[in-house]
């Protein structure tokens, strides 16, 4: 007897009907890179996997005017190879390229990364940095939530039973904004993030910061923009001193949220350097 059943969805409408079936408890299956690891050791808390990895509507990466739309079944490889994202969301492309190795990137999806909501999920800081909104669909309708509100903690989301992340949208950053992502792992490939950082920024004609975003990964239980740090940078010239101060402020905000833990001694200095370096890349004139 198989421990669970499998069915392939061919459209969002079909997926939502299958996922919302009151008779059969179902979960979405994307690239399988988290689900397959889980079901190997645990008794799955569902009776059926609904494969959404080939739903055409969920594979798109498009620019619609001032907005980018990225389907939830887009793989890390597809995201990284997308000219649309390379132009508008370098931080997301860099984050996708930092995931696992080629075989993981060919399978794992952005929707899966967000729904699984691991504290170390590599796409989260970049999506949050871009102010990405997750669009959810279920039998009872559609709703949209900021990714930073959808992820409520490590491996916890506001997703309800039968709800599917169909796609993400985010505003095209203003002209001239650059973004960057840095990951700190134990090695380059196949590494789990110890800490990561996404930043975006732009300098005005006077060389002062007129746009800035900062979003650390694996630092706080709920991903968020560190607006306290953004505020101290805005309107200022990004001198070495200011960027160092921004690094210190980033560490302070993190510790303010998490308290001091066994790992803080390491993370405090590491996040300072990571914030400083990532901001430097994003703000490089």
């Amino acid at each position: 007897m198989p421990r669970f059943d499998y069915v392939r969805a061919h459209s969002v409408a079909e997926a939502v009907q299958l996922l919302g079936d009151p008779e059969i408890l179902s979960r979405p299956l994307g690239g399988g890179t988290d689900v397959l690891v889980f079901v190997r050791h645990e008794k799955p808390p569902y009776d059926r996997l609904v494969d959404i990895s080939r739903v055409p509507e969920m594979k798109i990466i498009e620019r619609h005017g001032g907005e980018i739309v990225v389907g939830a079944a887009v793989t890390y490889t597809e995201a990284a190879e997308s000219p649309v994202l390379q132009e508008a969301a370098a931080c997301l492309v860099e984050a996708c390229l930092s995931v696992g190795g080629p075989a993981i990137r060919n399978a794992g999806t952005l929707g899966g990364n967000v729904a699984n909501a691991a504290a170390c999920a590599d796409s989260l800081p970049s999506l949050v940095c871009l102010d990405a909104v997750a669009h959810l669909c279920s039998r009872s309708g559609e709703r949209a939530l900021l990714v930073s509100d959808l992820v409520t903690g490590a491996n916890r989301t506001a997703l309800q039973r039968g709800e599917l992340i169909t796609h993400f949208t985010f505003p095209v950053p203003p002209a001239g904004v650059r973004s960057a992502f840095t990951k700190l792992g134990r090695r380059n490939a196949q590494a789990i993030s110890r800490l990561s950082m996404a930043a975006a920024g732009r300098l005005d004609a006077q060389g002062c910061v007129d746009f800035v975003r900062l979003s650390p990964g694996a630092a706080t239980s709920q991903p968020r923009r560190f607006t306290e740090v953004e505020a101290m940078l805005l309107g200022q010239e990004p001198t070495d001193e200011l960027l160092a101060a921004a690094g210190s402020q980033t560490a302070e905000v993190m510790i303010g949220m998490t308290g001091r833990r066994w790992s803080t001694e390491y993370k405090e200095v590491a996040i300072q350097a990571l914030a400083e370096r990532t901001l430097r890349r994003a703000l490089a004139g």
Partner: peptide, 28 residues
């Protein structure tokens, strides 16, 4: 068996994947 070693690598529609992380019916 968790996608870290690559010993199970195969090409699926021309792309390298870890066959230990692909559910068999996904290959349909």
């Amino acid at each position: 068996a968790v996608g870290e070693c690559g010993a199970c690598s195969v090409l699926m529609d021309g792309r390298l994947v870890n066959s230990c992380l692909v559910l068999a019916p996904q290959a349909d």
